[in-house]
Computed example of a mutant assay.
Amino acid sequence: MIVGLTGGIGSGKTTVANIFAKFDNVAIYNADAEAKKLMNTSPILKSKIIDEFGAASYVDNQLNRPYIANLVFKDKSKLEALNAIVHPEVKNHFQEFVNQQHHKDYIVYENAILFESKSNLKCDIIITVYAPLDVRVKRTMLRDNSSKIAVENRIKNQWLEDKKLLQSNYIIDNLDTEKTQIQVIKIHNILTEKSH
Rank of each mutant, 00 (worst) to 15 (best):
K163G: 00
S47Y: 03
K179C: 07
K74M: 07
Y67Q: 08
F94P: 08
I113W: 02
H196K: 14
A84E: 12
I127M: 05
E89I: 05
C123D: 13
R136N: 13
E116N: 04
A35S: 07
I185H: 12
I68R: 07
G8I: 02
I155T: 02
K22I: 00
T140S: 15
E96C: 11
T128K: 07
K74I: 01
G8L: 08
E96L: 14
T15P: 00
Y170F: 15
I149D: 15
D32F: 01
L121C: 10
G54T: 05
I190N: 03
E96K: 15
A112M: 11
L71T: 00
W159S: 11
K138M: 13
D176H: 11
L175I: 13
R65V: 12
D162E: 13
Y130N: 12
M1R: 03
I149M: 08
N174H: 10
P43Q: 06
S11Q: 02
I149K: 13
N64R: 07
D144Q: 11
D60A: 14
N145W: 02
L45Q: 00
I113T: 12
R143K: 13
I85H: 09
A33D: 15
K48E: 14
L38E: 00
N83I: 05
R65M: 07
K118G: 09
R136G: 07
V59I: 15
A81Q: 14
V108S: 03
K91A: 13
F23Q: 00
G10E: 01
M1G: 02
